[in-house]
């Protein structure tokens, strides 16, 4: 993040999870797709919803509602934000996709001390937008779900 904050304005792909407005730098986003056919993975961590075939690439879909420990399931079929990472692509399942916004890095702040729970570990900071706050998702933390649930 630090290198990017030196630039004048950054573009963020925004999305919603319950009441939260979150953002990922557009550079990290490979594509956004609708709900796909998924193959569940028995014994995998609960956050793993399943595997998706994205043009021959096998993508692990992660339920961000579960990752953020939000109550309830997706209000409607979730959207996939496909993130390409070094060791394969993952797809973040989110409630809804927002706009791509350009943000002045000056408005960045560390996460407020009052932020608690899962959210605290999963965001790197906050952008103060005109009408709302945009939480910046910590991709590395959000996709680190390596513990085995049931073995």
């Amino acid at each position: 993040m630090s290198s990017k904050s030196t630039r004048n304005s950054q573009q963020y792909c925004t999305f919603y999870l319950g009441d939260l407005l979150l953002g990922i730098s557009v550079e990290d986003v490979q594509e956004v797709i609708k709900t796909q056919d998924m193959t569940p993975v028995p014994l995998a961590p609960g956050v793993v919803t399943g595997l998706v075939n994205l043009r021959g690439q096998i993508v692990t879909a992660l339920d961000m509602r579960k990752r953020f420990q939000l109550n309830g399931g997706f209000p409607k079929p979730p959207m996939n934000i496909v993130i390409s990472q070094e060791d394969g692509a993952v797809s973040l399942l989110v409630d809804e996709i927002g706009d791509v916004v350009s943000i002045d890095p000056e408005s960045f702040e560390a996460p407020p001390e009052t932020l608690e729970g899962a959210c605290r570990e999963l965001v790197t900071g906050v952008f103060k937008l005109e009408h709302s706050l945009l939480l910046v998702l910590d991709l590395a933390a959000a996709t680190a779900v390596e513990e085995v649930a049931a073995a």
């Binding site: 993975v41 995998a44 793993v48 595997l51 096998i58 692990t60 993952v90 513990e147 085995v148």
Partner: peptide, 12 residues
Amino acid sequence: KPLGRQVKAVTT
């Protein structure tokens, strides 16, 4: 195809 790291630990 290899599994992503989130599911790699599943030994089955």
